[in-house]
Design a protein around this nucleic acid. Sequence first.
DNA 1: CGCGGGCGCTAAGAAATCGTCAAGGTCCGG
DNA 2: CCGGACCTTGACGATTTCTTAGCGCCCGCG
Lengths: 224, 224
Amino acid sequence: MSNVLVVDDDAHIRSALGITLRANGYTVSTAPDGESALVSAAQHPVNVVILDLGLPDIDGTTVITRLRKWSGVPILVLSARHGSNDKVQALDAGADDYITKPFGFDELLARLRALLRRSLEPDETPIITTDAFTVDLALHRVLRDGKDVSLTPTEWNILELLVRNPEKLITQQQLLSEVWGAAYGKEANYLRVYMAQLRRKLEPEPGNPRHLLTESGIGYRFQP
Amino acid sequence: MSNVLVVDDDAHIRSALGITLRANGYTVSTAPDGESALVSAAQHPVNVVILDLGLPDIDGTTVITRLRKWSGVPILVLSARHGSNDKVQALDAGADDYITKPFGFDELLARLRALLRRSLEPDETPIITTDAFTVDLALHRVLRDGKDVSLTPTEWNILELLVRNPEKLITQQQLLSEVWGAAYGKEANYLRVYMAQLRRKLEPEPGNPRHLLTESGIGYRFQP
DNA sequence: CGCGGGCGCTAAGAAATCGTCAAGGTCCGG
DNA sequence: CCGGACCTTGACGATTTCTTAGCGCCCGCG
């Protein structure tokens, strides 16, 4: 989940925001002043910064400017000041949004979601590649020699489970209960049938598999 | 220079905003209601939209939702309502910022700059083309051999979901809950009926589809 | 060497899913 | 009130997928 850095000199606000944000699934770090905020932001990656302008050490606008020197992280400004001058300065310094106190938590959360929606990286497609074939988990697709291979639902379920755990041994029990259901603990025969089909569709040499390996008596393993 | 689309039913506000924006170097187009706003945004590229929520024809959040179906353009909402519910709904529908009236022009301009800073490139054309047909997501139109194909609302919803996720397998559950609602998880034969109709209208050879593919037991896939 | 268990492989029947058609049903404008 | 557009629903063979049984192989073991 997303990581939020809360910068505010008031310990009560830090605590309240921290609790609310954590309750909504964010991980939270806090800083009481500008210097420590900049240090904290530099030390571990942050997805969004909530920044109170009234800091004891540095001017809030300066914090924004210094942060923007090296980071493009979205910044949401909190401020007690309603004057439009402050807003313009903060926004032009590089802030992305500006809320005046008092504010509603649900509005703050909605604005946070809007900011994170923008900065969410173009979704990384989990793609697994081997010498012989390519599995695209997001598209739900398998390629071999550039052509896509059509798998039945059961074949796909087995392949997905194996491919999501590369090099890891998956026991027959795991496979059976994951794909067929908990009641099918004894039907090891199914596995032989479907592993044979998968190898026939994916392995260059089905009789001598190099990626879908058998661990005799225990289960199967996917080798990238 | 950046192109701004101003959507407001009040001609005075349109005029005042237009003058102010042009004085600041923006090019401006305007729309008095939701429908014309959507058409305008579809016809020529827009860098940012300023949207009043109180429109005469469509609900403001609906405008946002429909725009977001095909465009990632930043949206700045103007509203007379201060209630946090409205804000949350608009922001979660896809808006990027929200100002309540009355507002200062300099604040509006600063927020506009903040939005434009993030999105340099104008949005891409939301038109998907295949050998057989062309789908214009913005205008809700489908062309085949240069001729308009008329689709029913349900047909369009299905096609849109598939076409917005090219090459991606969409499960029957996804299609049913997106198009009919979450309660229709089991009515898989609706899909068969409508996929047949879509193929009859769009595929050169409906019995042997090349773009609207079936993944037996799982769902459907659009192949450009 | 003979035996048995686990595995690879095949194929046929059973079951589920799919494409297709057509018969209502509903809603709305003329 | 009627007609048309649209959505539901049921039924049918055609196709795909699942299940099950059978056979031969390899390998460890008595």
